[in-house]
Design a protein around this nucleic acid. Structure first.
Length: 498
RNA sequence: CGCGGGAUGGAGGAGUGGUACCUCGGGAGGCUCAUAACCUCCAGACUCCGGUUCGAAUCCGGAUUCCGCAACCA
């Protein structure tokens, strides 16, 4: 099989808060795509991690009286635990405070500098001491006070490094005009309009007297990089860059492979503009595809600590299990638009589609198989199928595997909801097929015919399992095992206590 | 006219030019392999007004209305 390598990343969550259900949407999507590409025979590198520098984190650690390194270690651990909770298959977990990452951030800085794209400029701004942030005039109230501390801002002059974003405007516009680069229409329109509207150079450093929790600027101990300049580099530092050796991961995945970055709608300026300009400046290939997603609302409201409506992924996993949580995120969240979630909805999705849907279907088919067929009879008809076999099956008889093309087409447009809908359509078809053919009744009058039907059903159940691999890997494996052993498994999904 | 996104049966959601689909809920029936499950049928919807078109939930214009755009927060 000669298929292109696939590289997938998420944006890195900032470690100033526990992960919530919105944080993990993107990670679950990325994992699903990674598993899909592996299923299709691609070599895959899937990376996620944590963004750990910057003022907010330094401030938070300082407030807690905690060593900053200890603080980020603790938080990074709560994000790394997601790997187990959500059964993630990431090949790397990149932390921006790691030495290798810092070296990469300094290297890309040097390359941009060598290209003449980094310069020092004194910057006069309205600074709020309380927030430790510069504000623009229109972000202040009528008394020139910041809206949080309600104290007057100070006019402060600081010398910072700037990145020549403006220089890359035309190239960025060309990049964004290519629809394949930004498949989500609203994101493409927004970034394109923004770029056409004129790009200003951006400040990319902070003086250590104000903020020192960051990667030191090469050759200038007085400054550290502003957090996103360092953080964006993670997409290649995780691949071992600046190592560009021919057999290294950077060459294999970033240069020769297909690169896919997932990001939330708040990230458009950073991912599509600044990061792409940094790559241009450093003379590295740009990201092939950036796929943007919407946000999750909880009962119609945005996720907010002050409202107190935050749902933790760990709570969801505890109540419904890993695969069910993946299922909610992948099928019931819109792949690109905002979506809404509540505990009541999760209960409904769980019972209707997992307990009564895939769980019950597996039980009824495998009970019939276990009762009426031997392991040998199953094995003689069911080979361990891979996706290529499914394609062959479809070519022989398009009706036999309904809409497999729809399944793969959905994945090719990153529409995980569409792909899962396809699986549940197949599940529905099988329930109906059992009702229509009544093998449980036929077995008494025409055993051979009934057995044939049951074997067919088992085969189709295995097709369901195959298509479930990217979405719900544990469930897929349980079904595979049940078919292999010709044994009805324990209930896949237990009923919720009412 | 600040910017942007919405308005689809009782509820929540799919659906970017051709029989409106799914889940829950309501009504009637069926089946007994299955986890009080599953199947069939019924009632019930594209916010409004105009336009383009042979044909519009879908494209265009207008109206009404809801949501996001300070902070915590993806």
């Amino acid at each position: 099989m000669d298929k292109k390598a696939k590289y997938i990343t998420t944006t890195l969550p900032y470690v100033n808060a526990e992960p919530h259900i919105g944080t993990v949407l993107e990670i679950a999507q990325a994992d699903c795509l990674a598993r899909y590409y592996r299923l299709m025979g691609h070599e895959v590198f899937f990376s996620t991690g944590t963004d750990e520098h910057g003022q907010k984190i330094a401030q938070k650690a300082d407030e807690l009286g905690q060593d900053r390194h200890e603080y980020v270690d603790e938080y990074a651990a709560t994000f790394e635990k997601l790997r187990e909770a959500l059964n993630l298959s990431n090949d790397a977990f990149i932390r921006t405070t790691s030495e290798d990452h810092k070296k990469a951030a300094q290297e890309i800085w040097k390359r941009c500098e060598a290209a003449g794209d980094i310069y020092k400029k004194s910057y006069t701004g309205l600074y709020c001491v309380g927030c430790e942030v510069y504000y623009k005039q229109d972000e202040l109230d009528e008394n020139n006070c910041c809206l949080i501390h309600l104290k007057p801002v100070e006019e402060v002059e600081e010398e910072n490094y700037f990145f020549r974003l403006s220089k890359y405007q035309d190239q960025l516009v060309a990049y964004l005009e290519d629809e394949s680069r930004t498949p989500t229409a609203w994101a493409r329109t927004w970034t394109l309009e923004f770029a056409k509207g004129g790009l200003e150079d951006v400040s990319i450093s902070r003086h250590v007297s104000r903020m020192d929790w960051g990667v030191p600027v090469p050759g200038d101990d007085e400054h550290v990089m502003y957090v996103w300049f360092d953080a964006l580099t993670n997409y290649i530092s995780t691949l071992g860059w600046p190592d560009e050796s021919p057999d290294g991961n950077f060459q294999k995945f970033w240069v020769d492979g297909d690169t896919l970055q997932l990001a939330g709608k708040d990230q458009m300026r950073f991912q599509s503009l600044i990061w792409q300009a940094m790559l241009l400046s450093a003379e590295l290939p740009q990201t092939d595809v950036i796929q943007y997603h919407g946000f999750i609302n909880i009962d119609g409201q945005k996720i907010s600590k002050s409202i107190g409506n935050v749902i933790s992924p760990y709570e969801v996993v505890e109540k419904y299990g890993t695969d069910a949580t993946r299922y909610f995120l992948l099928r019931h969240m819109h792949p690109t638009e905002d979506s809404d979630i509540t505990w009541a909805k999760m209960d409904e999705w769980y019972t209707a589609n997992l307990v009564n849907g895939i769980g019950n279907l597996t039980a009824r088919i495998m009970k019939m198989a276990q009762t009426h067929l031997t392991v040998e009879e199953i094995q003689s008809h069911i080979e361990s199928k891979q996706v290529d076999d499914l394609f062959e099956l479809q070519n022989d008889n398009p009706q036999s595997v309904p809409d497999l093309a729809h399944y793969t087409a959905s994945f090719s447009t990153y529409n995980l909801q569409g792909a899962s809908n396809n699986v549940w359509q197949l599940i529905g078809d099988l329930d109906q097929m059992i009702q229509d053919t009544e093998p449980f009744k036929l077995i008494k009058t025409d055993e051979a015919k009934a057995k044939e039907i049951i074997v067919t059903l088992v085969g189709k159940l295995q097709d369901v399992a195959t298509r479930l691999i990217p979405l719900m890997p544990e469930t897929a494996e349980i079904i595979y095992q049940a078919v292999r052993e010709n044994k009805k498994p324990e209930n896949l999904f237990g009923r919720l206590e009412s």
